[in-house]
Amino acid sequence: MANKRRRSSRIAGLWASAIASGYLFAFSTPAYSKTQELGFGSSSQSSENVQHLQIGDEFQPCDGCPTFVRVPAAPADLRNIRFVSKFELTWRNYLQAVKDGSCTVSNPNRPPFRKPQPDLINAHLDRLEIDWPITVLGPDDVECYIKWLEQKMPLDVEVPTHDEWKWFASSGRPSVRYPWGNDPGQAEEALTGLEGQPFESYTDARRPNGSDLTGREHYFYARYLHALKVGQFPPSPWGLHDLMGNASELTANVEPYIRSDGKADGSYRVITAGGGLIDKRWVEEGVNLKTYTIASDGQYSTYSSVRLVLL
């Protein structure tokens, strides 16, 4: 367990240390024994049982935890990823760690809403315990949640690198451009949500309570709920949802952020993947598309989610 704690505590620290290195960074993972008999909370699955799950099998380490899907063996140039989160990390997932006092929602005032209103989110945490991507976390919040989740199972929890994200987003098919195949003409059909609305229609009606929102509720949800409820887009062949079309997903790759005047101010930019398809570059680049968010003062410059992997 000590190895896991040391490894997990590196996540925010190594993102920050990459500033000084001046180049893209990808984690290396120390050895860790996966043979310990550790419980999985309410799921009561032992590490041995998890190791024997078949490709495509799912498990949930605890009530309210993310659901993970067993994936095929990764290529030799990637880490030994065993499971990938079925969905992006949700408010429901993260608030389990908040409710037991382990983590906080420390960055509820994402741009463009920079005026501090901590009481607003604290007063409505129960209303946010829903299956919506959480996109207001900062680096320390992500690290805190990973530490909390690792206590629930005998596997290492990580943020994927961009190469790892491309691998599972394409279901291990290097020649495939999109999660659904190679035909960009199928994009709108593939990315139409289960509600039957085109992917461009991110309307208030698709937030909780729909048109019944009061003015204050509308403001509340507009602040904290971005993208769409998870599972709205069809799964990949490996059973992973929302790989393209929903929220941008953080990766473990970072590089220094140089301002327009050529100076480095201690900020760094993180490569993100997937995301909403407003930027039509996805048509040409598909899963290879790289976008960026700037990490500064404990928060990200854009609304970014995260999809975790287990090693």
Rank of each mutant, 00 (worst) to 15 (best):
M1V: 12
M1D: 08
M1E: 09
N3Y: 12
S9L: 13
S9I: 13
A12W: 12
W15L: 15
A16V: 09
S21A: 14
F25Y: 15
A26H: 14
F27V: 08
T29P: 04
P30K: 12
P30T: 07
A31S: 14
K34H: 09
G39K: 13
F40G: 09
S46M: 04
S47Y: 00
V50E: 03
Q51A: 12
H52M: 08
I55T: 09
I55R: 05
D57V: 01
D57M: 05
E58F: 02
C62T: 08
D63R: 09
D63N: 14
P66G: 06
V69Q: 01
A76Q: 11
A76S: 14
L78Q: 07
R82V: 04
V84K: 01
E88C: 12
T90E: 01
W91H: 04
V98S: 05
K99T: 10
N107I: 04
N107W: 00
F113W: 08
D119A: 07
L120Y: 07
A123I: 12
R127E: 03
R127G: 05
D131S: 14
P133F: 04
I134Y: 02
T135C: 14
V136E: 02
G138F: 00
P139I: 08
D140V: 12
E143L: 11
Y145I: 04
E150Y: 01
D156L: 15
V159P: 01
H162R: 14
K166Q: 13
K166F: 00
S170A: 15
P174W: 00
G181W: 05
N182D: 12
N182A: 06
A187P: 02
E188A: 13
L194S: 11
G196A: 09
G196V: 02
Q197Y: 11
F199S: 07
T203E: 09
P208K: 02
S211L: 13
S211A: 13
S211M: 13
D212T: 14
L213D: 05
G215L: 08
E217K: 03
K229F: 05
K229S: 11
V230R: 07
G231M: 02
F233A: 07
S236R: 03
G239W: 00
G239P: 03
D242V: 00
M244S: 02
N246M: 02
E249P: 01
Y257M: 03
I258N: 01
I258C: 00
S260V: 05
D261C: 05
D265W: 03
Y268H: 08
V270D: 01
T272S: 04
L277D: 03
K280E: 14
W282H: 03
V287A: 02
A295F: 02
A295V: 10
A295C: 12
S305K: 06
L308W: 03
